[in-house]
């Protein structure tokens, strides 16, 4: 259906999985579709995600906001297949990707299924036993069985785009946090995932490194990559989002296709309260 090798000869583009290359996605309208998703951890008394439904059209930047513990990471992890779900289903390009299993086990995914979603985590999780290039090339060669030379060429193009071409032979421990996250983004992109998931990828970074990573994500957004972003960087969310949802108490309490309006004039009290936690009022200071 999707020829993963076709893009390797194209121009050096970050948006390797642009909508045009995934006919099945555009045909269905929604790249990712979540229906009645229920997630409850084994020893928890209440579900973390309680009947969540939403669609992410191809090419959309879908930003998820919410207070700590509201289940943002859990949501991304269920989409990535890292957590079994107890109800509902997740489809991608019209094909079933995950569904609830009575045994609580994850459906075993085929190699092509397992590379449909790319994810970058908050912690720097490059493989320390591999170089930058080794990290990026491992999965396309091993899992997607692609030609090594063309994978390497594409890896170098991706590194070029994130400004790390000269670090291709470095070891992860020799890189700064911001550089590691940029490599992690390349490592996910090279598989041409239909959807990219970013879980607070700048939360552990020093402030001056946040920018270099967010710029890469912004560029990726401009290239048409479908993505779900969890972030606490409100200014960034405002700049990058096509669609914003606020997650609280296991449900989506407010969502908007007009991010500026959402940030400036949230409708629900919960959203007003949440956004207020990011502003400081001089009036709070006792003189």
């Amino acid at each position: 259906m999707t020829d993963i090798n076709a893009t390797t000869t194209g121009s050096a583009s970050l948006g390797v999985a642009g909508a045009a290359e995934h006919p099945a996605v555009t045909a269905q309208g929604a790249a990712l579709s979540v229906r009645h998703l229920v997630k409850q951890y084994d020893n928890a008394s209440a579900p973390v995600l309680n009947d969540i439904s939403f669609d992410v059209p191809a090419g959309q930047v879908f930003v998820i906001l919410g207070p700590s513990g509201s289940g943002k990471s859990t949501l991304l992890r269920t989409i990535a297949g890292l957590e079994p779900i107890q109800g509902g289903e997740i489809t991608m390009g019209g094909e079933l990707l995950r569904q609830a299993q009575s045994a609580g086990k994850l459906r075993s995914a085929s190699a092509s299924d397992s590379t449909k979603v790319g994810m970058v985590f908050q912690s720097y999780d490059l493989f320390p036993n591999k170089t930058v290039l080794g990290n990026i090339m491992l999965a396309p060669v091993l899992v997607q069985k692609r030609d090594k030379a063309s994978v390497q060429a594409e890896a170098l193009r991706l590194l070029e785009r994130v400004g790390l071409a000269d670090r291709k032979d470095a070891w992860p421990h020799e890189l700064s946090g911001g550089q590691r996250q940029r490599v992690a983004i390349c490592r996910a992109l090279i598989e041409h995932p239909q959807v990219m998931l970013f879980d607070e990828v700048t939360a552990a970074l020093d402030p001056e490194m946040v920018r270099e990573v967010l710029d890469v994500i912004l560029e990726l957004a401009n290239s048409g990559q479908t993505m779900l972003i969890v972030t606490h960087e409100m200014a960034f969310a405002r700049a990058v989002a096509d669609h914003v949802v606020l997650l609280a108490n296991g449900s989506i309490v407010e969502e908007s296709d007009h991010p500026q309006e959402f940030f400036d004039h949230p409708h629900t009290e919960r959203a007003q309260q949440f956004l207020a936690t990011f502003t400081y009022d001089r009036g709070q200071r006792q003189s």
Binding site: G81, T115, V117, D125, F127, L138, A139, A188
Partner: peptide, 14 residues
């Protein structure tokens, strides 16, 4: 070995 090493490998399809 941190759990995220298993998880990143899994998301990459290994």
């Amino acid at each position: 070995i941190p759990r995220t090493q298993y998880e990143s490998a899994k998301v990459l399809g290994l």
